[in-house]
Design a protein around this nucleic acid. Structure first.
Lengths: 186, 186
DNA sequence: GTCTATAGCTTGATAGAC
DNA sequence: GTCTATCAAGCTATAGAC
């Protein structure tokens, strides 16, 4: 019973994530959300009393959990570093569909003055950087270098996603993925 | 007489560029445009019969001209390569205010199904890549390598801008600028 | 070439029945 | 927890006077 209800909520959040990710905050209008979820506005407001802002915040929270609990988890787990990084790279590749899907941090922070959204996006990016940096330190890099390499690696990924969206060319994103070992380990 | 008129138009385009750049297509509403330009809607439609879409297209055209005629011009000019690249880097740094200002290619292509906008953004990015690649070839890189390095250099810049917008940290963008020589020349 | 005034639609959000 | 019906406000766009 409870698991069924939780699954329904999870499916709803999945659909909302897709919408905000591909259309941004402004572009994810309630009418589009209604169409995609099959729920009418009043029903959506029953589940998210805070309206669209609360939906976006829930989407960011869920995606942060995905990053921490799945995509980046291997980097904090035991095992051989190169293999753990390869796992994270493979999961990132799938998550961004080889560059075919945008990043929420990019699309959701544009023109969003909402404090809850900005704080969550900032926190999610920080966690990503911290995790990459900790892994680089484990691989022998001094703290300052590790942080720099972590930031540059993520910037390469994000930039690759921008280029993919603008021109359709996914190669820069894929190369950014492939370059993770030399960026964080060597 | 004519130069005065042209200057007025140039100032208007400058204001429009700022608005689209920082707020995206959806966020740059006509009311904000009215406020920023001091013109009322009907006056704006007198200058841009095609409405907001035509404004965005004009902004992209103007920015493409800025890239070709100013920012990237040194790379196609005679002189010592390292000095020419340094000039372009300095101009890019100023153009993006050290990472404090977003890139139109990123903010204007989100949720924009308009064909004219997408085509122009794609063309502008292609020109940027081509110019970087031609410079890298001049510096001795084979064509395929040159293109790859050009794409990766621009991805690093675009990613740095994303990180700057999300977290406020401009270091990744500044490092991407500083790394241009080793990316395109060495 | 600028303005006032207005049209028509979409937006996010609520009230209240069932 | 879902729905119908409705709201005020915002949006892009246009008509027409000066």
């Amino acid at each position: 019973m409870k698991t069924v209800k939780a699954q329904v909520k999870e499916d709803l959040l999945k659909t909302l994530t897709e919408l905000f990710r591909e259309n941004g905050y402004d572009g994810a209008s309630l009418s589009r959300i209604m169409e995609a979820t099959g729920l009418v506005k009043a029903s959506l407001y029953h589940r998210f009393a805070g309206g669209k802002e609360e939906m976006a915040e829930a989407v960011l929270d869920r995606t942060s959990q995905t990053f921490a609990g799945d995509l980046l988890a291997p980097l904090s787990a035991p095992g051989e570093p190169s293999e753990r990084l390869a796992q994270t790279a493979a999961r990132l590749k799938k998550f961004y569909r080889s560059g075919g899907l945008p990043c929420l941090l990019d699309t959701l922070t544009l023109n969003s003055n909402n404090q809850g959204i900005r704080r969550r996006a900032r926190g999610a990016l920080q966690y990503w950087i911290d995790t990459f940096a900790a892994f680089a330190r484990e691989c022998g890099h001094p703290p300052a270098t590790a942080r720099r390499r972590a930031e540059d690696a993520i910037a390469a990924l994000e930039g690759g996603l921008v280029l993919a969206r603008v021109s359709g060319n996914r190669q820069p994103f894929l190369r950014a993925l492939e370059s993770l070992p030399e960026r964080l380990m060597q």
